[in-house]
Design a protein around this nucleic acid. Structure first.
Lengths: 190, 190
DNA sequence: GTACCTGTGTGACCTACATCACATTTGAAA
DNA sequence: TTTCAAATGTGATGTAGGTCACACAGGTAC
């Protein structure tokens, strides 16, 4: 399916835009292709855009002082990703985003999103809805973190996103769950 | 300060409404008073409203099968709280909200919020901004959870919200940090 | 083919935090 | 003023998960 059609169907679930409006909105997005392993956002840089995934799988992650990686989010097709903190507040990235597989994305700048939100009430409605979803998901994950052990969280993740099992290596799953790769391995093997 | 004025100044930071619009918006909020210890949302009930805190301090929390409590959020004046998952998805509450101190709040129903967002573009803009803030904060907390030990997270919390130290008992702080009250106590005493 | 690198399994040991039990303080209610 | 419940401190002990070390398998670059 064409990029424009993917975006259209994604937005249409929430907000109804005319074809003209959709074309206008779409004209603000820039299609980009990346290879497996390529970096999209690097901590320390300024962040100008957010990204809508068309194909492939991205990860957004934080690297701490001990060079340990923590994964905030895997981004599959029709998911949005960026360093939203840096993007909204015009500060330097503390989060990285890179490609777990080859990927195609649509990117839109912060200023273009704000312009579109301002010009088209429906677009603002869509983005409000989108962040609502993200907020609720983040709260759920936080609760699961406090309440459930690694095994439960691992199985919860795979139930929610079975496709991750085949695409994402276990060391990255561990970094998402916030445990060492050894512990994850021992859940089913040792 | 009067309730309407508090809400006005809170919204005005983000979206400019005329006095007439503000009065119209305000007319959809219902002022409520609660005593310390009173429950505002109970898990299992349907959730109809979200709450804007005028005075006092609320907590939103989850109780697991072992009756252990996990606090999602403390809500101080000008903060919003509810079980947003239940509210947006019209499902029963899994989260409770109650009063740590006597409290005054403004409450608005889900349908009235949606109506106002639909009628006034500026209001939708405000609520998009609000959720953005919440989303970014939730992600930060998640990262801190994975990356930092209890002592660090405790000091981070008190640096961000020093007023909590005097208002909120330590067992609730522990429930927010996701550790036992004993561990929190031992950080500085044992 | 050889060399290499990424991903994964696993043993030995360490540590942060949980749990249970009980003591002590404090503040509000009667 | 007395009483009681909530909040807090602290010792003893258990455990989930971390860390380090090493082994090995399967791609892939040369």
């Amino acid at each position: 399916m064409e990029a424009k059609e993917v975006l259209k169907q994604h937005i249409a679930k929430i907000a109804s835009l005319t074809d003209d409006e959709l074309s206008y909105v779409f004209s603000h997005f820039k299609p980009l292709s990346f290879k497996k392993g390529q970096s999209i956002i690097t901590a320390g840089d300024m962040v100008d855009c957010e990204y809508f995934v068309l194909s492939g799988c991205l990860k957004s992650f934080f690297i701490n002082d001990d060079l340990k990686m923590f994964i905030l989010q895997f981004a599959m097709p029709t998911w949005w990703t960026s360093d939203f903190n840096a993007l909204y507040n015009h500060t330097k990235a503390t989060i990285n985003v890179d490609c777990i597989t080859d990927a195609e994305v649509l990117c839109i700048s912060n200023s273009d999103r704000e312009k579109l939100c301002n010009e088209l009430h429906n677009v603002e409605h869509f983005f409000r809805w989108r962040t609502n979803k993200g907020y609720v998901a983040a709260q759920k994950r936080l609760l699961s973190f406090m309440n459930n052990n690694v095994k439960y969280r691992y199985e919860e993740l795979l139930k929610l996103y079975p496709e991750l099992y085949n695409i994402v290596p276990k060391n990255l799953i561990a970094a998402y769950l916030g445990v060492s790769r050894e512990t994850l391995s021992r859940l089913y093997h040792a």
